[in-house]
């Protein structure tokens, strides 16, 4: 008998599949297509301390086997989330996780503290790919010191499961992972989007309003797998792998590289039911390989 139940820190999940922040709304947008409570975890939109209008249109460009986006964290702020959105999602019978972003450490801390008080939110995912406006706009997640500082500060006010989402736009992701582990993270998730760019050759203009944006979809999968593999050699906290997962085989590859759970992002746009199909496919794979749980294949890659 295969059991897909998975634990990440204190977070207990029906299966190791989550939906990625920014690609699944608040979950409710997808409820017509399936029973969303059957997904292991739903990571809702990036939430910030204050309301953000996000970037101007155009915010999206299709690219070979993927897409670029520059949504720019449009959201109504944490207080609006607590008052108006939380009541509508708190009874969904799965792990509803909030993705937290900020422009300075104080913002992250204030936002995390407010979400800590919400009974039905068992975890947060800290998005450290955001630019630090007080320090010249360099993303927190691109230096060990920046990543360490923000995680350490949030850890002090947040006592549930703290997942830190790593940026792939760095030279040594394993070093960043080690510093967030040291700062008290319960798990890391990777990867966020890769910086990219697209151009309209005829009109000689960029396709995104912000010129550069974040690349996602199957085109980033090899980079994501490589990073999960490197991070799995560097830390002992659980890893949540994502980047370009379209089906169960892709998910299995992430487990083999060292991930304990995975997230589905851009694939939700092509098939809104991907998360549940991946859960079925993983079950089927484990049965075929005589395994009873995902943990048996985590990091089981055979090398040399």
């Amino acid at each position: 008998m295969v059991d897909l139940k998975t634990k990440i820190g204190n977070l207990v999940m029906k299966n190791p599949i989550m939906t990625a922040s920014g690609t699944f709304g608040y979950g409710t947008e997808y409820a017509d297509f399936m029973d969303i409570s059957q997904i292991g975890g739903i990571i809702v939109k990036g939430t910030t301390l204050n309301h953000r209008e996000g970037n101007p249109y155009p915010r999206m460009a299709e690219t070979p086997s993927g897409m670029l986006n520059c949504v720019g964290l449009q959201n109504k702020g944490v207080d609006y989330f607590v008052e108006h959105i939380y009541p509508t999602i708190k009874d969904i019978d799965t792990n509803m996780i909030v993705n937290v972003s900020g422009a300075c450490i104080e913002d992250y801390v204030a936002t995390a503290a407010k979400i800590n008080a919400l009974k039905e939110i068992p975890a947060i995912e800290l998005n450290i790919s955001c630019p630090n406006v007080k320090q010249g706009g360099m993303a927190f997640g691109t230096t060990c010191e920046g990543a360490h500082a923000v995680v350490e500060a949030v850890r002090k006010v947040y006592d549930k499961t703290l997942i830190v989402k790593l940026s792939p736009n760095v030279t040594d992701i394993a070093a960043i992972a080690r510093s967030v582990e040291e700062a008290g993270a319960d798990a890391v998730s990777l990867i966020n989007t890769l910086m990219g760019m697209a151009i309209d050759a005829e009109k000689q203009v960029p396709l995104l309003s912000t010129i550069t944006g974040g690349l996602s979809g199957p085109c980033v999968k090899p980079v994501a797998l490589r990073m999960v593999w490197q991070v799995s050699k560097a830390v002992s906290i659980p890893i949540i792998g994502l980047g370009g997962i379209m089906n169960a085989t892709d998910a299995i590859e992430f487990f083999l590289a060292g991930a304990s759970a995975i997230q589905i992002g851009t694939a939700n746009f092509i098939d809104p039911t991907t998360a549940l199909k991946v859960a079925d496919g993983i079950k089927n794979y484990l049965e075929r390989h005589g395994c009873s749980s995902v943990s048996e294949i985590v990091g089981a890659l055979k090398v040399g």
Binding site: G25, K45, N69, T266
Partner: peptide, 16 residues
């Protein structure tokens, strides 16, 4: 507008 999800989930298709 250019769309990714078509469901109101990704916020790619906004107009002012």
């Amino acid at each position: 507008n250019k769309m990714a999800c078509g469901l109101g989930a990704c916020l790619c298709c906004v107009t002012e």
